[in-house]
Design a protein around this nucleic acid. Structure first.
Lengths: 114, 114
DNA sequence: TCTATTCATCGTCTTATGGCGATATGTTTA
DNA sequence: TAAACATATCGCCATAAGACGATGAATAGA
């Protein structure tokens, strides 16, 4: 039995989330389940690349997969994944505003110097 | 000006979080600020490796750094990073329990088959 | 000023990751 | 059963990432 610890799984989940294409895939799937043939035209990546990304999300237990005839349909397994992403976005937004703040202060001191 | 979008930053944050050593570093720093010479003996990694990991967390704006004499002190910049990690853990725990559930069902059906 | 301490950075190696085209597999449809 | 379709997988390449020891730069103390 391949004993999986929470530590292993969380690294796997976070790794799966740390790619721009995969984050876009999740956003795309937030609208509901989609088969690969719907997903493909929405992304400027080769079929093999998209398939690989979907599989990484599936292996991380983030996506669910069901085969329906000759189609394969993917969907979000647990919507809490979006809560995680939203919290990360929130952190990122704070970082951006702090950067902007620092920029203003720098600008001001440069003006005063002249 | 290197324009940073939220998308760029969130990938950077998530990438920084997707490594077991760095997650351990964050846990270690959850107890408060620590200088590198305190951190080092707590980890079985070379000094250069730890330094690099700390820098990745710093570059992702997750850690703050202040130089104090010949020491460098690191601390958590925004405690919300732990909320993110806790949510990921929560997802991971759900996955584990679902795995355990599936295991039981499989076991049962194997017993019935005999 | 010489030495020790603390830490970052460099160079190198090995492995992981993302990308693609080509091929394989399974499923409908003709 | 052959052809067409939908996906997964393979093999390859290029780049990124993690690890380490060695070196460099700054500070503190003798």
């Amino acid at each position: 039995m391949t004993q999986k610890t929470v530590s292993d799984l969380r690294v796997k989940i976070l790794s799966a989330l740390s790619d721009p294409t995969r984050l876009e895939l999740l956003e795309y799937l937030s609208g509901g389940e989609r088969c690969v043939c719907e997903i493909l035209p929405a992304f400027q990546r080769s079929q093999s690349t998209i398939s690989k990304h979907l599989n990484i999300l599936y292996e991380a237990d983030i996506l669910e997969r069901k085969v329906d005839g000759k189609r394969t349909v993917y969907c979000i397994k647990d919507p809490r994944v979006f809560e995680i992403i939203r919290r990360v976005d929130s952190l990122a937004l704070t970082q951006i505003s702090q950067l902007a703040e620092a920029g203003k202060i720098l600008e001001k001191s440069l003006n005063n110097r002249s």
